[in-house]
Each structure stands twice: as C-alpha cells, then as structure tokens.
Design a protein around this nucleic acid. Structure first.
Lengths: 244, 244
DNA sequence: CATCTACAAGTGTTATCACACTTAGGGTCG
DNA sequence: CGACCCTAAGTGTGATAACACTTGTAGATG
C-alpha cells in the first residue's frame, strides 16, 4: 500500500492514484508530451498494476490521456486550434452555468464565492502565482457548483484539467509584473460575477464569466503569438517557460 | 476470447466490451437501474475480469455508469432536472458545433448530411422507429463531425449516450401515429440545418439545431407530464413503454 | 410476529504472472 | 554509409487467485 498518509480510509488505491495524476497535471508537475507507463507508475506509487490500470483507463476515457507509441498513455499536446475550441466550449458551458448559478445559488454558496475573491486578492498582493492559480480554479468551481448541475460541472472540470497546463503559462510569466494588469482585470470580472450572483442577475453573471474567459484566452494567444510567429491552428505550443 | 466474429483484429477485448455495453445502452437493450456486475459480464462475454474492469472504469469515468450498493456499477436513472440540464447543455454545445460546421464543412461532409436526411425520410415512411433513431443520431453526429472539433464531439457523444434511453421513448410511442407530426417537424429542422450548412450560414444552422433539440425535449417532457402528474425536478421517470 | 445471529452468496479490489507486440540499440554486410 | 537482422528492453493486455466488505437468507429466540 503506497503512501497511506495521503490516502483516506475509504479511498481505494485506484482513486488515490487517479487523484494524484490529475493533481500533477493541474500543478504543472506533469506536462504535455509525457508518457505515463504502467510499470513506471507501479514503481513510483509502490502498488500493483491493477489500480494503476484502472486509474489510467479513467483518464483515457476522459481524453486527459491519449495513446502514444506502443499504446503507452501520454499527456496530449494541444494544438492552438484545440485550445481555441476548448475556450469556445468553456464560454458556452460556463456561461450557461453562471446563468443557472444566478438563479440557484444559496447565500452560503455566494459567501463562499465572495471569500474566494478576497483570498485571491491577497495572493495577488503577494505575487504568489501558484496560489492564485489554485484559487482561480476554486473560485470558478464554486460558481459552477452553485449552479447545481453535476452534468455541467463534470464537463467544466474536464475542460479545465485538459487546458490547465496551458492556462498557467501567462499567469506564471506575468507574476514578475507587479501589479499585474491582466490579473487585476480578471479580478474585475470576478467581482462583477459575484455582484451578479448577489443580484440574481443571470445575464450579467454569464457576461462576466464569458468576458473573463475571453480575456484569459486572448492573453494566452497573445503570449503565444509573441513567442512564435506561427499562426497556424495546428501548431503545438511549447510549454517551457522561457528563461528570464 | 469471446465472440471473435464481432471483434476486429486490432480491437482489444476491453475495447470490444466497452463498445458493446455502449451499444446496448443506445439500442435500449440495457436500461437505467440495471447493475453491471463484473462477474456477470465475465460469464456473459466469456472473458477474464481484467478487460471487463477496464471497460467499466471507462464508463464510470464518463458518468455513463455510477456506483450503486456494494459499489456495483449501475446505469443511472436520470431525474427530470438532470434531463433538463442535459438538454440545456446540448442546445449550447450542439448549437456551437452547428455554427462551426457551417464554417468548416467540406462538400463531401455536407453530402453525407444530405444523404442521411433522405434515408431518415425513408425510415419514417416505413414507420421504422428503431432505424429512425439510429439514423437520427448519425445525422446529428455527421454535422458535429463536420465542425472538426473533437473536443466538442466527444462531449456531445457522451450526452447522447447518457440521455439516449430517455430520448427513445416518445419516438417509440409515436411510431404508431402515421405520419408522425413530431417526426415531420424534426425533419423540417433537419432540412433547415442542411440548407444552412450548404449556404454557410452559421446562425441559421445553430438555430435549426437548437429548435430541433428544444422540440425533442418539449415532446419528452410533455409525454412525461401526461404519463404522471408529478412536476418535481427530482422525480425519476419510469422507462417502461406503456402497454397499448 | 419481530428481532437477532450466523453463514452463504454476491460485490469489488488488488496482486501476480505470462504473453504479444513494439521500439531501440548494436552488429554485420554490401 | 545505408540497409538489414537480431536481441534486449520496454510497452500494454488478459488470466487467475485471494482478500475485504456487503447483502440476503434462514434459523433461533423472545
């Protein structure tokens, strides 16, 4: 049994492995292009192959992993075109979820969104990009959770997981700029969405979320364009943060 | 090795099992509420537990199956509220895909959509509800495939798979009515979408698809309301087709 | 009749093993 | 130098066995 301390008593081994692989994607510890071989994970986690296989099967089903040479499962590189499609879908689905949240959120849920705004401001003030990123996802997720639509929430979680490695990039680069204009602008959209939830204004909530998503994706594509001249949709971005 | 005839030479056992379980859902051979125990599937397919587990893990990851008593995986009953959320999401995502398809479809792809319209008309003229349902999905899928966005297509496929058992209901009931007004109306939306693809009109394509989805979901909820007085969103519909 | 206990049957989970196929690296030959 | 062959190492796949836990049933007791 591996690392019993980080595995709660009811969690199966496969669930724990699944959770940890997902986490490594969101935190940048694992990167697109990496292969996740069963045997290497067996050694790393000190478990048998069975729960590793189960976890990997799940991640393949979610398109978080794709088959590479010799059928090894790999974290896919997303092309610019795919990233654009993900952002279009996010705008559509997260916009709809924000509308539902404006109609359905409880006062406790709205307070949670508000508290997360405050802690995000604090992380920004400290220039702590990693914490900001973690809180950014928590902020968005709390809104979509308040929509009380598990169907939508699962789709959104999946899209965030798959595009997460790319979305981190401008935020990490930007951390050197203090205060960051882009992050301040995001917080304005976040505050606008919070106000819309408080007012039960579904249209305003949707617009604020969609503006936030559009700004983040514009920022990412601007960064990519500046880093590389290519404009082709099937170009695959290089995820290494440039040296300063 | 099970049923080698229906398993092509490159398909793994787990893939074949996965495909067959999905198929049984779409055709109504398996129904919400059923438990899929590993050992029963091992007997049914005459294979070992390992590929069965892999297939089931994938279906769980896609929320096609959920955990029941003793952690057995079951086909979930969807509540009215969940069905409504699925329809909202379908309208948003399939509408977006139809827009993309209007911009991106090749003439071969448009011809495929047109041919499918024709064969659907033929199935309707014969009162063949099962064939109509199969073709209806093929028709829609051909449009979304022409959008060239795998991200969106996979989400759509998943939503269709999960709501498929419910969407079959009014079509099967309706088959006795000849000609069926609802089916004729659907075909009008289908034809409108085809015309929009041919004209490269993204707005019209989106509107036609969304109208088709809205009409189908209205029909389903009207059928449910007529069958049962309950209006509560968490009511779980009974999927048995009533005796005639 | 209701409640409790014991046991069998059913559920999934994990470990281990062997096989098939692919990929990479080294050596040989023309 | 390029092409080909061979072998080792790496990849996943499926089979089998044992264990843990849960559920259902039958029998005993008050």
């Amino acid at each position: 049994m591996f690392d019993a301390k980080s595995q709660n008593s009811k969690e199966t081994t496969q669930d724990a492995i699944y959770r940890r692989i997902r986490q490594s994607l969101l935190t940048g510890q694992a990167s697109p292009g990496e292969a996740l071989s069963i045997r290497r994970l067996v050694e790393k986690f000190e478990v048998s192959a069975t729960p590793v296989r189960d976890a990997l099967s799940r991640l393949e089903a979610e398109f978080v992993l794709v088959r590479g040479p010799n059928r090894v499962l790999m974290i896919p590189n997303l092309s610019v075109g795919e990233l654009k499609d993900i952002h279009r879908l996010r705008a559509a689905i997260e916009g709809l979820s924000a509308e539902l949240a404006a109609d359905r959120a409880t006062s406790d849920e709205i307070k949670e969104v508000s508290d997360l705004c405050d802690t995000m401001d604090a992380a920004l003030a400290k220039g702590d990009a990693d914490t900001y990123l973690t809180l950014n996802w928590a902020f968005h997720r709390s809104i979509y959770k308040a929509a009380h639509s598990d169907v939508a929430l699962h789709i959104i979680e999946n899209l965030w997981l798959r595009s997460g490695p790319y979305l981190r990039l401008p935020v990490l680069i930007d951390a050197a700029e203090q205060p960051s204009q882009s992050r301040q602008r995001s917080m304005q959209f976040h505050r606008a969405c919070l106000a819309a939830l408080q007012a039960g204004d579904a249209d305003a909530a949707r617009d604020a979320i969609q503006s936030d998503i559009a700004a983040a994706s514009d920022e990412l594509f601007q960064y990519m364009k500046a880093a590389h001249a290519a404009e082709v949709d099937n170009w695959v971005p290089d995820l290494r943060v440039p040296s300063k």
